[in-house]
């Protein structure tokens, strides 16, 4: 439970979730921002809870389900690599405008 564990875990989770295909960015969102405080700054979109690690993302493609599954798998791999038994929680905070234009809704309209 050292300090570097916590900071390293938050950064690793953010990197894994952010590099998943379909995830455009991590967002804090909400009234109470989902951030992890680290020395000198914050890791946006990652909250290390007591029972779950929640990741808050913005998505840039449809359908959402495979993207969310990808995030759960990527973050789950990081957690199991660190011997962490917490659940993974994915919150889709936002959808990019480009996904709405070029996705199933966009093709139907134009």
């Amino acid at each position: 439970m050292g300090g570097s564990d916590r900071v390293g875990l938050a950064r690793a989770v953010a990197a894994a979730a952010g590099s998943t295909p379909g995830v455009s960015r991590l967002v804090a969102g909400g009234l109470i921002p989902a951030v992890t405080h680290v020395p000198g700054g914050t890791v946006t979109g990652v909250r290390l809870g007591a029972t779950a690690v929640s990741v808050h993302i913005a998505i840039d493609r449809f359908p959402l389900e495979p993207v969310i599954t990808g995030v759960v798998q990527a973050v789950g791999a990081v957690l199991s690599g660190a011997d962490d038994e917490r659940r993974v929680e994915v919150v889709v905070e936002d959808v990019e405008d480009s996904a709405l234009r070029s996705g199933p809704f966009g093709t139907g309209a134009s």
Partner: peptide, 14 residues
């Protein structure tokens, strides 16, 4: 507007 538990955990570990 912050999660106080999160802040105190961060302070403690740092």
């Amino acid at each position: 507007g912050q999660n106080i538990v999160e802040v105190t955990e961060a302070v403690r570990s740092n």
